[in-house]
Write a protein that binds this DNA or RNA. Structure first.
Lengths: 181, 181
DNA sequence: ATGGTAACTGAACACACGTTCAGTTCAATG
DNA sequence: CATTGAACTGAACGTGTGTTCAGTTACCAT
């Protein structure tokens, strides 16, 4: 409840621009009452980012594995778009508020984010090894695909011109071609 | 001088998290003296974002036109990467601090940003018309390419593993393939 | 030397910040 | 009905915020 309200506000105005009083007002309390739920403001941010990334990793881990590289990449592409479109606020915060994290919290989040990137990187490396993908630099391809896919959250609207399925399909085609598969 | 300092600080900590006193300290003044150079904090942000986008549009306008769609796209790809890598702070701010802009300032910046996107969209539309590109949805392809290219700024380091030329070449190849050219 | 002016200081303004805490409320338990 | 305890209020804490402005400084043209 509180976390959900904070997430909405952080995504909209940014962590630094949202006061504890504003969050409290959003859930109909006084600011002091929030401290029954969180030790401080920073923990509120860290908690939501950590949960988001852990859910991301768990959801991907629960996605069926496939052997063929192209299938794995399609699976990842569709998973990434779908998961991120369901959580636009959390995604926004996870990518934008890294600099609002205190050093040790930042490190923890970076580790999780890196772990997720490695999932894609592994798929690409295998596909490169089997000759399914034509990519001169695996790490660079990883970053390119993630940036491209995450970008969907900046413009996609549920009531927009294109359905999710159509967006997923078109992006998968672009990713596939870009990786030379 | 002041704008440069503010740009650095905004990029690093975010607009809301940087105080006028902090900016003043960075340039060796008291906070009050800043108001000889800017009417207020918001103008400082708006000014740097506007300048950045105007320079972006001007620089692209000054780039030689080419007739063949694939050449135009290569030109845009390399231009975008090169221009953005030269101004990592300005890029970061232009993409991250949109929400810190007051409504009318936001509108002005969005207009400029949209104008730049249209440059790419035009290239893609022409290439699609001539059959040089195979893209089911032009607008979506535009967003995908911009997201992918801008993503470079999040990981590229001048002293890193890959030279700019190599990064540009690899990205151009991915973009080309993704557009079916 | 003198007057003018642009740059800057340092203090102040009203307000907002994150956080703490003594006290109040109120539903559940005995 | 009395007691407990969690949830919450409302005020306060020290500090920081953007912005203003009467003064001081330092330099430049006369």
């Amino acid at each position: 409840m509180i976390r959900a309200a904070a997430e909405r506000l952080f995504a909209q105005h940014g962590y630094a621009a949202v006061s504890m009083r504003r969050i409290a007002a959003e859930v109909g309390m006084q600011a002091g009452a929030l401290y029954n739920y969180t030790p401080d403001k920073q923990s509120l941010l860290f908690g939501m980012m950590k949960s988001h990334l852990e859910e991301l990793l768990a959801a991907w881990a629960a996605t069926p594995r496939t052997t063929r590289p192209a299938e794995a990449l399609e699976s990842f592409t569709r998973f990434h778009i779908s998961f991120h479109l369901d959580r636009p606020d959390a995604v926004f915060i996870a990518y934008m508020e890294l600099r609002s994290l205190e050093p040790q919290n930042f490190t923890a989040i970076e580790t999780l984010r890196r772990r997720y990137e490695t999932e894609l990187e592994t798929i690409l490396r295998r596909g490169k090894a089997t000759g399914d993908f034509t990519i001169p630099d695996t790490r660079l391809a990883t970053m390119a695909v993630i940036a491209m896919l995450t970008g969907v959250t900046t413009w996609y609207r549920d009531d927009g011109r294109l359905s999710r399925e159509r967006v997923e399909r078109i992006y998968w085609n672009m990713v596939r071609k870009a990786m030379g598969a």
